[in-house]
Simulated assay, not measured.
Amino acid sequence: MSDQLRETNQQIVRGYIDGINAWDFDGMREIMAPDFVFEQMFAPPGMQKRYEGRDTLLEFQQSLTSLIITENLHDLELDTLASDPGVVIATYRSDMELSDPDKSYTNDYICRFVVRDGLITHFQEYFDGCRLVTSFGGTVTEPQIG
Results as ranks from 00 to 15, higher is better:
residue 1 M to H: 13
residue 5 L to A: 15
residue 5 L to R: 12
residue 6 R to I: 03
residue 11 Q to N: 15
residue 11 Q to H: 12
residue 14 R to N: 05
residue 15 G to Q: 06
residue 16 Y to M: 08
residue 18 D to L: 03
residue 21 N to T: 08
residue 25 F to E: 03
residue 25 F to N: 02
residue 26 D to S: 14
residue 28 M to E: 00
residue 28 M to I: 11
residue 29 R to P: 00
residue 29 R to H: 11
residue 30 E to W: 02
residue 32 M to Y: 07
residue 33 A to M: 05
residue 33 A to K: 01
residue 34 P to W: 05
residue 37 V to H: 01
residue 37 V to P: 00
residue 38 F to H: 11
residue 38 F to I: 07
residue 40 Q to W: 07
residue 45 P to N: 09
residue 48 Q to Y: 04
residue 49 K to I: 05
residue 49 K to W: 08
residue 49 K to H: 13
residue 49 K to M: 14
residue 50 R to W: 04
residue 53 G to T: 00
residue 55 D to V: 05
residue 56 T to K: 11
residue 56 T to Q: 11
residue 58 L to E: 03
residue 60 F to A: 14
residue 60 F to K: 08
residue 61 Q to L: 15
residue 62 Q to L: 10
residue 63 S to F: 05
residue 63 S to G: 11
residue 64 L to F: 07
residue 64 L to P: 03
residue 65 T to M: 11
residue 66 S to H: 10
residue 67 L to K: 12
residue 68 I to N: 00
residue 68 I to S: 01
residue 69 I to Y: 09
residue 72 N to F: 06
residue 74 H to N: 10
residue 74 H to S: 14
residue 75 D to L: 10
residue 76 L to E: 12
residue 77 E to D: 11
residue 78 L to M: 08
residue 78 L to G: 03
residue 81 L to Y: 08
residue 81 L to I: 05
residue 82 A to W: 08
residue 83 S to I: 09
residue 84 D to H: 10
residue 86 G to W: 02
residue 86 G to V: 09
residue 87 V to P: 02
residue 87 V to N: 09
residue 87 V to C: 09
residue 88 V to G: 00
residue 90 A to S: 10
residue 91 T to W: 09
residue 92 Y to Q: 05
residue 94 S to P: 01
residue 94 S to V: 02
residue 95 D to I: 01
residue 96 M to D: 02
residue 99 S to K: 13
residue 101 P to M: 06
residue 102 D to E: 14
residue 102 D to S: 15
residue 102 D to W: 07
residue 103 K to I: 00
residue 103 K to R: 15
residue 106 T to N: 10
residue 110 I to R: 09
residue 111 C to M: 09
residue 111 C to R: 04
residue 114 V to S: 14
residue 114 V to D: 10
residue 114 V to A: 12
residue 115 V to I: 08
residue 116 R to V: 13
residue 117 D to R: 14
residue 120 I to Q: 03
residue 120 I to E: 02
residue 121 T to L: 05
residue 123 F to R: 09
residue 123 F to D: 06
residue 124 Q to T: 10
residue 124 Q to P: 02
residue 125 E to A: 12
residue 127 F to H: 12
residue 127 F to M: 15
residue 128 D to H: 06
residue 128 D to I: 02
residue 133 V to Q: 05
residue 134 T to N: 01
residue 134 T to A: 03
residue 136 F to I: 01
residue 138 G to I: 04
residue 138 G to N: 00
residue 139 T to G: 13
residue 141 T to G: 06
residue 142 E to P: 02
residue 143 P to Q: 09
residue 143 P to S: 10
residue 143 P to F: 07
residue 145 I to Y: 12
